[in-house]
Design a binder for these strands. Structure first.
Lengths: 329, 329
DNA sequence: GTGAAAGCGCTAACAC
DNA sequence: GTGTTAGCGCTTTCAC
């Protein structure tokens, strides 16, 4: 293993000079700089991360706090999110550390205490009583919430604008003259647990539909979702007079086409269907009706941007970014 | 911020003693140990990770090298894998760092050079010319390959046994007396790029079918997979005399039922269908025919186990674990 | 059993 | 411009 001292010796300079070269300091003459660089290259030198961290108190790593996701259908997009976040963070010079929620926020707290991270991204924020938020706040850790809690406690927030999406979708129906909306959602548990995007979408959809004078019938999936097709059929049976169907449930979206075919509703032009889904789902299973596609990459980009800003300026005012996604017909 | 010195002072002992207490050394008397512990608690002390790493040269973190996954349908399971790996690693005392493949293996090399990780998990290993493998080998980094390359170079390997799975599925058809197999696969690109699980499954299926005297017709999806239903229909049109359909393509699995209904093949008892899918997909969209469900959690468990073993014993013989998944009817 | 002290590899004043 | 040096917080050998 070669250290900064080895390089210094080989280049006939002091450790300090090598350090300055690493930092691209303009104080170093071109001549010595290149001599030092040659030595670094010849010796295959690399900065030791731990030593640098200890010395600077900057870890240059971001913690990504991921939720436990048993039975949580939304997690399809988790992998894509993590990849994007990791790539984008690296572009700004940051590593990413995965922090899973086991034993409450234990792992998160330890990462903060041990000074393993400079900041954090909290994924799938809960509406109420999310202790990860309390922790971040208490420790004054630069943090971006991915999801909108009831009380962000002044922490930065980035997420898709589900309220806007719901509004756009309802207005789309109104434009088509629809009056009787069948709203098919996630399981009741999603709303009891107040899963962020679920709750926000439902509220906005209900409000907008009411405002537009639409009659609304709401159906929830079972939590196991053993048979989404059967569930959609049941929903339709429970409200057969619907003229518009809005789906916020990825599994149901997948089978919607099939169910319509089976029920002979497929080409009935007096029923409209629409949904909101993560965009990569639309490439997995091309959905044959209008959708709002949530663009994960754009969200990730904003998350990293806000977090890096926050790390470099702890006292800047809170940022809240709700990202708009287009209705895609 | 409180350091080990503060604790030492408060407990009227030396830094060394505090350190021994942290290490739970039996040399320390119960009396002093508890005095020190009280001081640690009172002061809210936590070990500084960077300092410990610098001192011990053990980072206690594992790098997870994830592939770029544009257009890669398999990535549905990525999130689940990452979560499991992270949870299981932590149970063994390790943190997990995400390393994305940008600019080749640049990020991976830097993580190794900077001594950021004690070991690595390489996800979605390629059959040939995966430079991440060369890197790990060259640097003698404890590494587990998730996927089976043509040449593992002595590195440990953990993966599902796709060969076994293919065999089980074919034998299932043979048992039912099927003779004419329609094999619907991923896109040609998957096989040209030699995506690991795709290639291994295909080879084994072809070999076993041939051995069993089955006639086989192979169909590939388009790379965009704009319309999986249409693709399946085309496949069937290209080989209408099939009596068995084996699917290795998650999108096609999703729409299979629908297509069969549309074509009026649904209840035809002289056609059998089977597939291989990640297990959480079977909870997302309950698949109505026999499947081999790849259990990610079991795979993750084995990966961590092997890697931790490897880190603690660099010279142990290579381990190769191919995990069997049951055919689930 | 406990303490003193040398290092781990790097950064950043501060001198010159 | 370059060198000297004092840390950063912890572990661990060696005395006692």
């Amino acid at each position: 293993m070669t250290t900064i001292s080895d390089v210094a010796k080989a280049a006939h300079v002091s450790k300090a000079t090598v350090s300055y070269v690493l930092a691209e300091s303009p104080k170093i003459s071109n001549e010595t700089a290149s001599r030092v660089k040659k030595a670094m290259h010849d010796l295959g030198y690399s900065v030791n991360h731990a030593a640098r961290v200890l010395s600077t108190s900057k870890t240059m790593t971001i913690g990504i706090v991921i939720p436990m996701m048993r039975e949580n259908v939304a997690s399809i997009s988790q992998g894509a999110y993590l990849t994007s976040l990791s790539v984008l963070a690296r572009e700004k010079g940051y590593d990413t550390m995965l922090i899973s929620e086991v034993e409450g926020s234990r792992a998160f707290r330890e990462a903060i205490d041990a000074k393993k991270i400079d900041g954090a991204i909290i994924m799938e924020v809960r509406r109420h009583k999310d202790e990860r938020i309390d922790l971040a706040k208490k420790y004054k850790l630069p943090t971006v919430l991915l999801g909108v809690p009831a009380d962000a406690q002044g922490l930065d927030v980035v997420d898709s604008d589900f309220t806007q999406a719901a509004r756009d979708l309802i207005r789309h129906f109104v434009r088509l003259g629809r009056k009787r909306l069948l709203l098919v959602l996630w399981s009741k548990e999603h709303y009891v647990k107040e899963i962020n995007f679920a709750v926000r979408f439902r509220e906005a959809a209900l409000v907008e539909a009411k405002k537009s004078g639409m009659k609304v019938h709401v159906e929830y999936s079972t939590s196991s979702q053993e048979n989404p097709a059967a569930e959609l059929k049941r929903a339709i049976k429970n409200y057969p007079e619907f003229d518009s169907l809005l789906i916020h449930n990825d599994s149901v979206v997948v089978v919607a086409q099939q169910v319509f075919l089976e029920l002979g509703l497929a080409h009935s032009s007096d029923i409209s269907v629409a949904a909101i889904i993560p965009d990569q789902m639309n490439s997995l299973v091309r959905v044959p009706f209008p959708t709002v596609d949530v663009n994960l990459d754009v969200v990730a980009q904003n998350v990293i941007e806000v977090l890096v800003d926050r790390i470099s300026n702890v006292d800047a005012p809170q940022q809240v970014r709700l990202l708009q996604h287009q209705l895609h017909e």
